[in-house]
């Protein structure tokens, strides 16, 4: 009969509409809560799918990458970066500039004097972090950073890029643990050799 197909389609949207109430308005369940979010947003979740941004936030993956950052171990004047330039060379849109530091006699030092990233060019590909031989450049996850001044806020220099290693460990715990393990293994191997 003409119209059956239409009604079948409308029944699907109707079911979605009803589900958004059935699964959302349970008075005994906490709303707008981590738990609520996990349930609604999961693959099995039904009904309302919306995140109540900014009160609620989507749980982003620990592997998520956005813009680069530079890691230092103890103090910001001793970054892990050695200014070897692999990141600047592998960067597909060439948005990284590095100047190597020199001592009083003009001999090059293994640390950067200047490090600039133009985030209006950066394509968030993560190659810099992937190919860095010193685990010095990593990807930040801070992504809700709208600005009204492009020149001031979107051209990152060394001061803005540097973050403590604890910050990195918090963002990417499993990557950090794997790197630490690898480093320890290397150190032990070196000890045994010695």
């Amino acid at each position: 009969m003409f119209g059956i197909g239409l009604l079948k389609g409308l029944s699907v949207t109707m079911r979605h509409f009803i589900e958004s109430y059935l699964y959302d308005r349970k008075p005994w369940e906490p709303r707008y809560h981590e738990e609520w979010l996990r349930k609604r947003q999961s693959v099995e979740g039904k009904g309302l799918f919306t995140i109540q941004y900014p009160e609620q936030k989507r749980k982003i993956s620990e592997h998520f990458r956005f813009l680069p950052m530079l890691v230092y171990d103890e103090t910001p004047d001793k970054p892990r970066c050695t200014a070897c330039g692999v990141c600047a060379r592998v960067c597909p849109p060439q948005c990284i500039w590095i100047q190597r530091a020199t001592d009083e006699k003009g001999r090059p030092q293994a640390r950067p004097a200047g490090f600039w990233i133009d985030t209006t060019i950066c394509m968030s590909c993560g190659f810099c972090a992937e190919f860095c031989p010193f685990d010095a450049i990593k990807m930040n996850q801070e992504h809700e950073i709208p600005t009204s001044d492009r020149d001031r806020d979107m051209f990152y220099s060394l001061e803005k890029l540097l973050v403590p290693v604890e910050y990195y460990a918090k963002l990417h715990p499993s990557d950090y643990a794997a790197e630490q393990q690898e480093r320890q293994a290397k150190q032990e191997a070196r000890k045994q050799e010695a």
Binding site: S124, I145, P146, T147, S148, M154
Partner: peptide
């Protein structure tokens, strides 16, 4: 008026820009 960094910005970043 507002610049949103990222390539591409996440939808949350865009919502933050709307709020700004």
């Amino acid at each position: 008026d507002i610049y949103v960094p990222g390539c591409p910005p996440t939808p949350e970043a865009l919502l933050a820009a709307y709020i700004a």
